[in-house]
Amino acid sequence: MTRTHFDQQLENIQEEMLSLALQVEVAMERSVDALSEGDEALAKQVIEDDVQINEKRYEIEETCLELIATQQPLAGDLRTIASVLHIVVDLERMGDHAEGIARVALMMPDEPPIMSYADIRRMAEITKGMMLASLEAFKDRDTKRAREISDEDDRVDDLYDKVLSELLALMTEDKSKIERATHLTWVAHNLERIADRVTNICERIVYLVDGTIGEMNVSKY
């Protein structure tokens, strides 16, 4: 006895989820590029593309609900669908965080930056790496890797601390920088939240594989 059609549908929702993740990855990368390069057009592109990310999330969600209603999934099938349902929400919210960074990029005046964006770029780089690794762990059903990835959130938190301290110092030193510095705290916050959401994805990978639901590496933020 086989369930070829259902197996294909299960495969499809996972493929669609991974494709959504790649859209989000592009949005993350572009948003930080738009900020650090002052590229207004790129920032607008990120904001525009977020509509497609949202739509894709709802499409996948709808397919998952349809599968639950029509196929009565159990055991591993049920856990797969439940995991995809959770992960697409996290991905969509990660897209929103990228959009938030793009909006900040549009708010920044056309002046030299008040600080080096190296640490912000580093945060983005680690976060993106975590996200891509989590997708690989999902495909490989690798819980060990999922746990390792969630531990990397600490590095993002440390950088977040560093960027915040720097920005607070700038604000204290020079009141004219308060507005721009505040905008940059939002950027750092968005990146920190993206890393937290990668941790959520890692939690779902563990649930998918061994059925245990639990919080991983609770962020201090």
């Binding site: 055991a75 856990r79 061994d210 059925g211």
Partner: peptide, 21 residues
Amino acid sequence: QRVFTNPKEKRTEDYITGRFG
């Protein structure tokens, strides 16, 4: 609840997910 969400035996998983035989 456990058997239907997270069976320990592959044979159980195969049966309840309709992939038995």
